[in-house]
Design a protein around this nucleic acid. Structure first.
Lengths: 119, 119
DNA sequence: AAGCGTTATATTCTGTTGAACATAACGCTT
DNA sequence: AAGCGTTATGTTCAACAGAATATAACGCTT
């Protein structure tokens, strides 16, 4: 009977993937989810609530992303019938889709490596 | 002429891979490099110097790794002709090798994804 | 016995990060 | 004009992480 040093009950392979931009982090799993919630809800504040994140934090993230590209990812509007809102621009949808796909392939990579290391 | 939103001059795909243990992080790129330097130098303090890391930090990391497995990865000795020292156990060499390989495959994954996203 | 380089461990300081709170502006609705 | 939900922005406080400093113990060498 062979003793394994690393068992899947006690150890878990994990990882993160991100895009580093000119000044700050540009895209990561948190920012990606935030973009998804903004697309769904049409609002930064509702997206923040959905992630149990403060509005300020969410706004800072949106601001950081928009500041690092020529074409902003999120377009915002203050005032109006519903108080304002936020939508993804075409550039925003493009980034969301591309990074989502990369993220899924990364999860698949982690599954494979988990099999190798702990399986 | 097609304008790219994300150019490889301004954006860089990066990532991290780690093994989460029962209590703490168990293995990551930093701990891996530390194990490598310990294997080379036979000393925690020399390994720490090589990484511009305080001895205490290095010792804490070694202690954290050893505490999370039945068979320690690093065997230490105090006192003696050279003051003491540290060597990798067979388990330590095994973990070093296995995680190094995973790390290399991860770097290759990042290269591929960089090509897709920014290439 | 003194000196050495190392492991082993605690404490203190400090910088960074995130949370919490507070306020203003905006444009529609009533 | 007052109220609303939202975007936009600053400040303050708490928690955590890392760096710096300090000290002891150990076992060989001289």
């Amino acid at each position: 009977m062979k003793e394994l040093l690393l068992t899947p009950e006690s150890f878990r392979l994990d990882g993160r993937l991100w895009l580093q931009g000119p000044t700050d982090r540009f895209m990561g799993i948190g920012r990606l989810e935030l973009l998804g919630h903004i697309a769904e809800t049409g609002s930064i504040s509702k997206a923040a609530q959905a992630m149990s994140m403060s509005y300020k934090k969410a706004w800072d993230l949106v601001n950081s992303m928009n500041a690092q590209v020529n074409t902003p990812l999120v377009s915002t509007q203050t005032g109006g019938s519903h108080g304002g809102g936020a939508v993804l621009t075409p550039a925003g949808r493009q980034v969301l889709e591309a990074f989502s796909a990369a993220q899924e392939r990364f999860q698949e990579f982690i599954r494979q490596e988990t099999e190798r290391l702990l399986g």
